[in-house]
């Protein structure tokens, strides 16, 4: 189809004019795009690393191995290690329910899943303070039972889960909806159990979307500032995450150390981008493979 159309037009219209602008326009556009990228992406990136290394490698290494920095990294990892698997399970369950079944309140559920995107992270943090804080709904009860939620690790984990809530589900819902439920129905008709169907049909079908969602969830979990800042209490070595630690160091005029820790977060972002590109590439590959299988 495309082939024949192309052949029809070919020869009648000068292809060059139809598909491309004069060279100088092309170059101008390219230059603009690169200048924009350079100004808004590469320059800040370079600034982070040059600031971080301005006082030399010794200061850089000292900053990222200092005990408060290390405990900030550990806390960031703990929060991500809890938030990501939980949201993975939740995301798959929610996407499954929404894409494969019809039920009342479905659009309400979708709206709820989107809520963390719509709410400012600071408000998200305040919500938890209002619920679990000393003056909050459960404040007295929690104190009586000696349970600490806000200004402790549980609060930070809660806030992280809240802000990263939608990523996996949001990634999977359109994908699952597009795939429909024929394959699952076939599996059931052929006698597969529910779990078997999940493992062998549903999950393999959405594999790349799922991984993509997890990467995004992880990036946000490790980078979250606003919500975590409200519930952290900023106790050094105990409740500071990496982004909070960066802010504190910066406010203490400790620019080299602030940028050193910031450079770790930047590296994380770069790794995320590379993984994301790889996953997208893999996903398009497997989509192409599927199409080939179908045509064969």
């Amino acid at each position: 189809m495309h082939q024949t159309q192309f052949q029809q037009y070919h020869g009648k219209v000068a292809l060059k004019r139809a598909t491309s602008e004069p060279p100088w326009v092309r170059r101008l556009l390219l230059a603009l795009a690169f200048a924009f990228l350079g100004l808004f992406l590469l320059l800040p990136l370079a600034a982070v690393f040059s600031e971080a290394l301005r006082k030399g490698w010794d200061v850089y290494l000292a900053a990222i191995t200092e005990s408060d920095a290390v405990s900030a990294m550990q806390l960031t990892l703990i929060a991500a290690l809890i938030a990501v698997p939980l949201n993975l399970v939740f995301g798959v369950a929610a996407a499954w329910a929404i894409a494969k079944f019809e039920f009342k309140g479905k659009s309400f559920l979708i709206t709820l899943i989107d809520l963390p995107f719509a709410v400012s992270p600071v408000i998200a943090g305040l919500i938890f303070v209002l619920i679990f804080g000393l003056q909050g709904w459960f404040g007295e009860w929690l104190i009586d039972h000696d349970i600490k939620v806000v200004f402790a690790v549980p609060g930070i984990v809660l806030a992280t889960i809240f802000v990263t809530f939608p990523f996996v589900a949001r990634e999977l819902i359109p994908l699952m909806q597009a795939q429909g439920k024929e394959e699952e129905e076939a599996a059931l008709v052929l006698g597969a159990s529910g779990w078997k169907m999940l493992w062998h049909v549903t999950l393999p079908n959405v594999k790349w979307g799922l991984i993509y969602g997890v990467i995004l969830t992880n990036a946000r979990a490790m980078g979250e500032f606003g919500a975590v800042s409200v519930v952290s209490g900023h106790i050094r070595g105990l409740t500071n995450t990496m982004p909070l630690h960066v802010e504190i160091l910066y406010n203490e005029y400790n620019y080299a150390a602030a940028f050193a820790v910031a450079s770790l977060l930047t590296l994380l972002a770069l790794v995320t981008l590379i993984l994301k590109t790889y996953v997208e590439w893999q996903a398009s590959q497997s989509a192409a493979d599927n199409e080939q299988e179908v045509t064969v």
Partner: peptide, 20 residues
């Protein structure tokens, strides 16, 4: 001795809200 630092009014608010 653990330290928590922040803007002074924010710190007071945190103690009111249960920062121990």
């Amino acid at each position: 001795i653990n330290q928590s630092h922040g803007g002074s009014s924010k710190q007071a608010r945190a103690v009111i809200d249960g920062l121990e």
